[in-house]
Design a protein around this nucleic acid. Structure first.
Lengths: 344, 344
DNA sequence: AGCGCTTACGTAAGCGCTTACGTGACCGGC
DNA sequence: GCCGGTCACGTAAGCGCTTACGTAAGCGCT
């Protein structure tokens, strides 16, 4: 008999269906060893009572935790929030709940968050955060994750490899390559890359793609300059100042993500430097505002929502042996921020 | 003795500190009834062992759940992601974890998410989602929340009242009022409001502020037109088409949130209508990209991160009797999207 | 000295679930 | 007709905590 004003428990269902606790549990879990007839009755009663299993009890008793932990740099960065959107979508479809953490781009803090999630016994962890510049931190994270997996935890990374876990990765190199080719086609010869922090595999890969494009076109490496900042709008602004000072011959800036590109555009606008008349700008990611900027941003489109979904589905499927990788498509989207190189 | 390869349990701590389970639990919970000396020893052992309480066991045994559920429309909408950022920040400081859900602007689905969170026994629920156009859905949500609170659940709403729970609210009416005054000052007389769906208290309040500004200035209500859409960029685009067709005399558009304003700007740009030369545009919220749009957007700044933090802190503090309200500041930020009304 | 009160701790009963194991009914095969 | 093997279900032992209650020691008081 359900206690007044309390949520029904499994015993309540069992009693009303006139079976034992064990049978009720089995029936609702869809395990076999219960006749179809009895199972139906139990499910019916559960529905009537509005029974929902207590996840804390369930997890304690050995069932798998039904929550997935997601670590991102910053939720209000569109790149991460679109990925998070995908994760949350699929999680909702699967009846999972998503615990979200921000690392604020601090590798140490990210490691701490990771430990916290593991300590909290979430079942699945998705990481879409920083590289760990510090090899010590990187190694610790790796060790933590290995142990976690050894105890049945599921992990996947988004947009980064090098952690020894399943990962979904855009083809960063091809994307960088496509951007560079686009600019070279437009006649640009002095290209400067506004890169994120050097520790990110993402940065290294996108950069490699850019460099190889120059090589493929037989251009001297001196045509390319690289300035490091961080992957934020503020970073983009700072880097732009630096570029204008140190590489005044630049006619095109490749920002390695859209956030930086926005910072670049904003600084160029306040300096009254025409885009793309005097300077072309490209980004990477195609966050949804990219099309609404002025000028609208030429960039590489990444299926971010899809990436989030894929990462979760990867973590959901039991992993066989070595880490798997899933790559995603990408697409050069040409908009108004790029144009022919100014004729000298 | 901790089992090999397993996380330490409370018994492990208790044994090593040579006390009983109960004492260890009390000491770590900071409850009294433990001598300072013993408590210190226990805390020391816990630290040495890297002990972290199992949250499932703790919650099951009657401790409060340490997770807060957050319902938003869409995580990749900057308004919501900035609020979420604030919630997550404070939650992290308090050692709480945040479960995030998207309702996708569907009241029925939002109600379902709400039920799901309650069934999952989260301790705290923060709602930053839709109004419930349908009175039935609204009533059900209200009932659900009342019952939840009766069992010790904590709830707060962000940006909406009418649910019978604590709420943090910007002064929407004053904000709408300020926007309208700004435009009237610039000489605009034919103003059209691009409103969100009529069911939102936010929409009603902001709209009321606009109307009252006209009244305060002695302008006829016919100077104001209102077109309803939804609070998205796409909604802003659609509404703009409608405005250009049905209210061609309009010289200024008040979008009731920034997302719509972005849609408005984008449509005006593709129609080659100069902003602010031929049409002034204002938004509401001041999401972080608002400053980077072209033209940069005149809007009302809301402390979204702060709103998220405040909502959580409100839910954290035990509620006395009737629902509390916390209002937040707001600020008219004048940028480049507004200018003098074109002279006829 | 005897009383009651407080303090500091231990004992043990759950919280609501999962699951290893036990048991009786029923089956076919010899 | 007896035996081993399924099948369908029940019994009960936890999972790792919190907490009501019990208890022994120590205190001040009359």
């Amino acid at each position: 008999m359900p206690r007044a004003g309390q949520r029904p428990r499994l015993v309540d269902v069992a009693e009303r269906a006139d079976v034992s606790l064990a049978t009720a549990s089995r029936a609702l879990a869809g395990r076999d060893g219960v006749s179809a007839e009895v199972a139906d009755r139990i499910r019916q009663v559960a529905r009537d009572l509005g029974y929902v299993a207590n996840p804390y009890a369930r997890t304690l008793a050995g069932g798998a935790s039904s929550t997935v932990g997601l670590i991102v740099h910053q939720v209000d960065d569109p790149y991460f929030s679109e990925i998070a959107g995908g994760v949350i979508q699929l999680a909702a479809e699967q009846g999972l709940l998503v615990q979200i953490c921000q690392s604020g781009r601090d590798p140490d803090y990210e490691l701490q968050q990771l430990r916290h999630l593991i300590a909290q016994r979430v079942g699945i962890i998705l990481i879409s955060g920083s590289g760990y510049d510090d090899p010590r931190v990187e190694a610790e994270a790796r060790a933590e994750l290995t142990a976690f997996q050894a105890h049945g935890g599921r992990v996947a990374a988004i947009g980064r490899h090098a952690l020894g876990v399943d990962a979904v990765l855009p083809d960063n190199e091809a994307g960088g390559n496509a951007l560079a080719h686009h600019l070279i086609d437009l006649g640009h010869r002095r290209i400067t890359v506004a890169a994120g922090s050097a520790g990110l595999t993402t940065v290294a890969d996108r950069l490699a793609g850019v460099s190889s494009a120059l090589r493929q076109r037989g251009l001297p490496p001196t045509d390319l300059a690289v300035v490091h900042g961080d992957f934020t709008r503020g970073g983009g602004r700072a880097v732009t100042e630096q570029i204008l000072n140190e590489h005044p011959e630049t006619t095109a800036i490749i920002a390695l993500n859209d956030a930086m590109a926005m910072g670049v555009l904003s600084t160029l606008r306040s300096r009254r430097i025409p885009v793309p008349g005097r300077m072309s700008v490209v980004g990477f990611d195609d966050v949804s505002v990219a099309a609404d900027l002025a000028p609208s941003l030429t960039t590489i489109r990444l299926p971010m929502t899809e990436m989030g979904r894929t990462a979760l589905s990867l973590a959901l499927k039991p992993r066989s042996t070595r880490p798997r990788r899933r790559s995603t498509g990408h697409l050069l989207v040409v908009r108004d921020s790029t144009g022919p190189a100014p004729t000298a």
